[in-house]
């Protein structure tokens, strides 16, 4: 086992930084892997909110993060689907629910039977066969293992306030004993193609065997000589994000709203909950100021 990676350095900021560090520490910390964090200043704005799909629940379970604290500490509310509005001409909005599809009769997907029914006059939209979609529209949240759901199986993710969620992860990482250094910037020390250390703006030199770049669009560890970023903007033309928040909605939905606009842009409206009482939450339309220049690559 002489070639084992012993020193892992995660350089970055905010949620990606801490999730990767905590995940690696939890899987390999007891296997003689020393995980270190080099934390850069946050890019999160007070108005930033997140919609996390249900895999976050399993991730937290694996990492040992208790979801019970999330409503209180970061305004988490369960989210059971995403509602897409104005994406298809005059068609009404549809809800993409987080669930397994209903069982078909055989080895082909249920949607094939629905498509056949539609050609034969069925007027019920596909989403009405989705436990997650129906629950989302009614503002209900199916339990994780709800026996009343029968063969259907729905899950939920969360709407979260991004800054407070990053703070929760930060605290969790520190409690897990991950040493961290805060810095305003790093320079990279290389031997050939290989990174051997990062040096903080304050002059601290941190060596490692393996480095993870979780710095966001800055990609601080990427080599200036080998910047092979692949541009997909010809297919995905949006290149700016504006965030803002507004007063709470009277009846906060259990879904994210994703609306399309004429200029090809889109917006997400997400409701954030009040501590422990999500049905009465204080949603804000998430929002404001543009992200830093570095987002624009």
């Amino acid at each position: 086992m002489t070639d084992r990676v012993r020193r892992l350095v995660v350089v970055g900021r905010d949620i990606p930084l801490w999730l990767s560090a905590i995940g690696l520490q939890s899987a390999l910390g007891r296997a003689d892997l020393e995980v270190r964090v080099v934390e850069l200043p946050s890019y999160l704005q007070p108005t930033d909110a997140l919609a996390a799909v249900p895999s976050i629940v399993a991730l937290h379970r694996t990492l040992g993060i208790s979801d019970a604290v999330l409503p209180r500490l970061c305004g988490a509310v369960p989210m059971v689907g995403q509602r897409f509005a104005n994406w298809s001409g005059g068609a009404p909005p549809f809800v993409l629910g987080f669930d397994t599809e209903p069982p078909g009769d055989g080895d082909i997907p249920f949607a094939q039977y629905w498509a056949k029914g539609r050609l034969e006059g069925l007027r019920v939209p596909l989403e009405d066969f989705s436990l997650g979609s129906v629950a989302a529209r009614q503002g209900r949240v199916p339990g994780l293992s709800d026996e009343t759901s029968g063969p259907l199986n729905a899950g939920f993710g969360y709407h979260l306030e991004a800054g407070p969620y990053a703070a929760v992860l930060h605290r969790f990482g520190q409690q897990a004993g991950i040493p961290s250094t805060f810095t305003n910037g790093v320079t990279v020390e290389r031997e050939g193609d290989r990174i051997v250390a990062v040096v903080t703006a304050e002059g601290e030199r941190i060596e490692g065997d393996l480095f993870i770049d979780a710095s966001g669009p800055d990609a601080v560890l990427s080599s200036p000589q080998h910047d092979d970023f692949e541009d997909w903007s010809r297919w995905l033309p949006c290149d700016r994000i504006l965030t803002a928040s507004a007063a709470q909605l009277p009846n906060p939905p259990a879904y994210s709203q994703v609306s399309a606009f004429a200029q090809g842009g889109s917006a997400c409206i997400r409701s954030l909950g009040e501590p422990g009482s999500w049905p009465l939450s204080r949603p804000r339309i998430s929002t404001n100021g543009a992200l830093p220049n570095s987002c624009r690559r």
Binding site: M1, R4, G29, R30, L33
Partner: peptide, 11 residues
């Protein structure tokens, strides 16, 4: 000659 590093995490 080796095995997965994660296997070492179990006491």
């Amino acid at each position: 000659t080796g095995y997965h590093p994660v296997a070492d995490a179990m006491p």
